[in-house]
């Protein structure tokens, strides 16, 4: 599915070049659950952003299903965001002026799904996450774990193949964190490819494969059984 070949990401300042990522090679197959670990500033988030087409590498090749996605036009990128991948953030990044229901619905509106179908799809997800009663609340009225559940719901409502999670449990207490990880695991079991960035050893363990980054270089890439 994902093929990264010799990816560099660097910033040039006056006299020197600072590498964020250096010669990263990565192959991720359909249905994998990958945890990316590493200390702060090791380039985890940058790597995730590059995979999510939110950032571009300075050098190297990146292809999805053998199709290069490096020089995509804005329109094509937006199509990937609409149909292929979903995002979860540490700070949830819900739209504060919108209710739970509206937040989840947003990607469907951009996808052009009809109103009736949208209702059905959002209702299904709310049901699945046990949040039907909370659908008219605003994000501030929910606990962190619930907010992140809404974030996940929003990320997967478009039925993406790939779910990218940037420290999804970073702001959560451990009980709630576990609940989120269980949810992700269940999604993975259903066949969704997930890549998560995390600091937490325990939560990294939910992944089937763990990649350790240090100073932008892949130090370790192990199967986790």
């Amino acid at each position: 599915m994902i093929h990264l070949n010799n990816i560099d990401k660097y910033y040039d300042s006056k006299f020197q070049r600072t590498f964020v990522l250096k010669a990263v090679n990565l192959e991720i197959k359909d249905g994998e659950f990958v945890s990316i670990m590493g200390p702060s500033g090791s380039g985890k988030s940058t790597l995730l952003n590059i995979i999510g087409l939110l950032d571009t590498p300075s050098a190297g090749e990146y292809s999805l299903y053998d199709k290069s996605v490096l020089d995509l036009k804005e329109k094509a990128k937006v199509d990937y965001h609409r149909n292929f991948m979903g995002f979860i953030f540490q700070a949830y990044h819900l739209i504060e002026e919108m209710t739970v229901y509206e937040n989840i619905e947003t990607p469907l509106i951009y996808k052009g799904v009809k109103s009736k179908d949208r209702q059905a799809m959002v209702a299904d997800l709310l049901d699945r996450f046990n949040m039907v009663a909370k659908k008219d609340l605003f994000p501030q009225q929910l606990s962190g774990g619930q907010q992140q559940l809404v974030g996940i719901a929003r990320a997967i409502i478009g039925k993406p193949k790939l779910l990218l999670a940037d420290e999804p449990t970073g702001n959560l207490q451990s009980v709630q964190g576990e609940m989120i990880m269980e949810t992700l695991k269940a999604l993975n079991d259903e066949g969704m490819t997930i890549i998560q960035v995390t600091h937490n050893e325990k939560f990294a363990g939910y992944g089937k494969r763990i990649i350790r980054l240090e100073d932008g270089i892949v130090r370790k890439d192990v199967k986790n059984v």
Binding site: G52, L54, E74, K75, V78, H81, R82, F87, H93, L94, I95, E96, E97, T106, P107, Y110, K111, R154, G158
Partner: peptide, 16 residues
């Protein structure tokens, strides 16, 4: 700014 970012990540085009 944040809202715009979220919307873009969720598939909003520049024009939208």
């Amino acid at each position: 700014i944040k809202e715009i970012g979220i919307r873009k990540v969720n598939g909003a085009r520049t024009s939208e």
